[in-house]
Design a binder for these strands. Structure first.
Lengths: 337, 337
DNA sequence: AATTGGCACTGACGACCGTGGAGTGCCAGG
DNA sequence: CCTGGCACTCCACGGTCGTCAGTGCCAATT
């Protein structure tokens, strides 16, 4: 059905359309690519490709444009991830090194990725659930309140203010702090609920209420918002693109963190590059965008995802190369941190 | 020069243009506003207003459009801040209450403000310099590293990892922690450098190097990045507007946090609403936008700024009302927190 | 002196062509 | 199965034209 040459034609169509943003015709293809056949032959192939739904004509007597299905085939079989140039690799290293804390690593990463790809970059904060407790801190605040701070080994800090505890006894707080650290230090966050389950029994009754409050806030802070945090950059790059859906819809979708988290999360093959093209995205506003995402982490443990959002008409090999490279470098930085 | 009626005409021009986004002519003005004079008279007034630079014609035989100078006069003398409706006030309260930590307060505030104004909202994190130290924590990490955490009374947490210390003695760390808290607890951050200046002398020589490293990181974390953190929302609202400058330029400007900080920071009259119109903004990309900003804080101490960015053609009274109201509510929430 | 109605003028905008060209589908010959 | 030729289609582009909102100016009115 799809012989070698038809695939070559499809590849050429995708590449030319990505470059020029104009429907590409048989003659232009014959000129710009060494396909070794005449325009008429290419036309016949294009008819076949169109019948199979890989390309389409905006209108009769215009050139062809790849469909989502066409891009899909291109990504799966016709292209290979383009490695970065040496200059780009150096840029990544110099850009990411010298970040002082997790916030800054994430901020620099997202900027870097958007500049490399000239598209919108997304970086998700390292997931809490995969990391483990480094230290738990309880700080008495003014007005009978406590601040709970959880520090993880990925450098992330979760903080909560706990209110309505009544009078606070400094010794009881110190005891509780010591007990919490003894029980949880080094544990994966997922193991924390089990580990603290029967702590209240070990606490003198007069302080038990406080302990229970603190524990419930602790568990909540670990579970509830564990993957919510996401950072964007490069939205200005969208202005240059003309979307089928309105730009407004795209921007709105990008502001909905939950949408982005779901999009990144639905990568089918962990620790690999994932590409979702056009209508493969469940979200209305993103019907005319594609998303390239990857996991990053330390070792072979995935902590979170990064990704790039751009028009379906994007340079897939280049974008995939950039995403993969940045994901690896961030993993290294986090490991060294 | 500018009698009462000419001012009324200018006000009418601004209001109509904001509503319709089309140059407004003398006849339309006579119809829609009860100015009590004929179109011909209005025309004469408009000639005068144009000579003085308050309005302009896009081209001959088109209606008039306000200039930056016209908007300025409108804001300064012809309009009053529009108080929010009861429903809007309720919306603010229900939206802001129930935030569990500073991050969430800020996140909710910025969303709220963008929804109220249907424009881009900016919220700056409470400044560190105006708050005071609640607690300093030092946590030994794996690999001869220390994590420094500073908690302020505005609920903000600054964290840094300190490296290259050599072997770490837990007792020495505990001593240093206690010493730091004794020296700085309750102090305004600005007073911290003086307060810790001669701490090293009180430390046994074998630990002095560590102490000096920690202190330098502490000072750096307080001084360097103290007002860098900014959050945006509502950029999708820009898509509906057509700017003189390209949308891309505006989005780029908005991604430069330093630009935004300068813009917010240049409010001339602290604790009041500030409006900067069009070319009054020093930044190229923001030449066709206006910025309405205000301080927020607890009591009469200003902690940081919030603001709204929109086209110069914006509803100034409504936007100013929303910014002022949100600033007040955030202050209250922070005070209660 | 200020206001008003009348009037001619201007320039943007949309509708309506006509044309050129890129691209197609199809067919007959290699 | 490939290729050159050919007729056809449709869009993009540019020019013309009428319409219309709005103006500036002037003479008449209050």
């Amino acid at each position: 059905m799809l012989d070698e040459r038809k695939l070559a034609v499809l590849r050429a169509v995708v590449e030319d359309f990505v470059n020029t943003n104009e429907p590409v015709g048989s003659k232009a293809l014959a000129d710009r690519h060494r396909l070794g056949v005449s325009p008429a032959t290419i036309r016949n192939d294009m008819v076949a490709l169109e019948e199979d739904g890989y390309i389409a004509q905006p209108h009769t007597s215009a050139g062809r444009v790849p469909t989502d299905k066409g891009y899909r085939l291109f990504v799966d079989r016709l292209s290979s991830v383009k490695p970065l140039s040496a200059a780009e690799r150096r840029a990544i290293e110099s850009f990411l090194s010298g970040a002082v804390d997790l916030d800054e690593i994430v901020a620099r990463t997202v900027r870097l990725l958007s500049q490399l790809t000239r598209q919108v970059a997304i970086v998700q904060y390292p997931s809490l659930t995969r990391s483990s407790v480094q230290h738990v801190e309880l700080v008495p605040l003014a007005g009978q309140r406590l601040m709970l701070v959880v520090i993880t080994d990925t450098g992330r800090v979760e903080q909560r203010v706990i209110d309505g505890l009544g009078a606070i006894d400094a010794d009881a707080v110190a005891d509780l702090r010591a007990m919490l650290n003894r029980a949880t230090a080094g544990l994966h966050l997922g193991a924390v609920p089990d580990a603290v389950e029967d702590l209240p029994q070990q606490i003198p009754p007069e302080n038990r209420a406080m302990a229970i409050s603190v524990l419930s806030v602790l568990l909540e802070s670990l579970v509830e918002r564990h993957e919510e945090k996401i950072v964007l950059a490069g939205t200005a790059n969208l202005a240059a693109v003309d979307f089928a859906a309105s730009l407004r819809d795209v921007l709105e979708a990008l502001e909905e963190n939950m949408v982005l988290i779901r999009l990144l999360g639905e990568a089918k093959d962990p620790s690999m590059l994932t590409v979702r093209i056009g209508a493969e995205n469940f979200h209305e506003g993103l019907r005319s965008t594609s998303i390239v995402s990857a996991d990053y982490g330390v070792g072979n443990q995935s902590l979170a995802k990064i990704g790039v959002v751009g028009p379906t008409r994007m340079d897939y090999p280049g974008t995939m190369g950039a995403v993969r490279a940045v994901a690896r470098y961030v993993g290294q930085i986090l490991a060294g941190q």
